[in-house]
Design a protein around this nucleic acid. Structure first.
Lengths: 135, 135
DNA sequence: TATTTGTACTTGCATTTTGCAACAACAAAT
DNA sequence: ATTTGTTGTTGCAAAATGCAAGTACAAATA
């Protein structure tokens, strides 16, 4: 890890995930069931290959993601959330809520609607789901 | 604003505040009562002057902060949160909680303890407080 | 067996952002 | 008249990002 700018917990969090890409990878794993390099590459935002490699390495190094060889295909890797990674879920949910509220071109889909109606319930349910997937 | 990478609300949020500095400025205004360029400069993370100027301009442009001439001193500016800026509070709280949970050198202070005990209450109370300060 | 496809990268280079240090404009205070 | 405080600007170096092409190697296909 880079050296920290301060001991403020917000600053510490941003030291790790304060960029335009890391949380999109987390989103893909957490909410879209994506698990591999090639799936992340396909996301509509269009991350570059070198950035993706670099971010995956950082996220693994920070114990946010875990990398394992795919059982079905030895030349494939599978990325999963750790508990630390899963604990970013509320951050993701809040970013989604704020983004949907202030961007006209971001229509709320099922999850967005549910968040607007009862955010706490969404967080509770997702927390349960993720707990069973965590590595 | 830059052009958006996608219509995903998370991606849209990160387009605006997905960097290492913006949310620290918001933190200073939201939680530390800071209101001016020179106060932001003093924060322990040590933001550079050109970055600070650039971020303040973006945050103002995005209607997250409002800049006004200080009543007491015409050569001073005062930055305040808009409702859109204040609505970032839950994001900040979640980042604080996550950062405190996973960084040993980030001891929870009063607010951190309160968040750990009853996050929803903190969000509710802060939301009330901020509503009275919003420009 | 030879070739193609899929998957996960690496490399090189241009562009953009960040970091650092010094300097500038201007009002208020001394 | 000079100093201090406040909000910047400028120049340059370093780091991060973006883009395009190439590589390594296992699995699938012909």
């Amino acid at each position: 890890m880079d050296k920290k700018r301060s001991d403020c917990p917000i600053s510490c969090s941003l030291d790790v995930i304060g960029d335009k890409w890391s949380l999109l990878i987390i989103r893909d794993v957490m909410l879209r069931g994506k698990m591999s390099y090639s799936e992340f590459l396909k996301s509509e935002e269009g991350i570059a290959t070198n950035i993706l490699v670099s971010r995956l390495a950082i996220l693994e190094d920070e114990d946010i993601l875990v990398r394992e060889v795919a059982p079905a295909n030895k030349s494939k890797y599978i990325y999963s959330l750790t508990q630390k990674g899963a604990d970013l879920m509320p951050v993701i949910i809040e970013l989604m809520d704020w983004g949907a509220k202030y961007n006209k071109n971001c229509p709320r889909k099922e999850l967005g609607q549910k968040i607007k109606k009862d955010k706490a319930a969404v967080v509770r349910e997702l927390s349960k789901v993720l707990k069973n997937k965590v590595k």
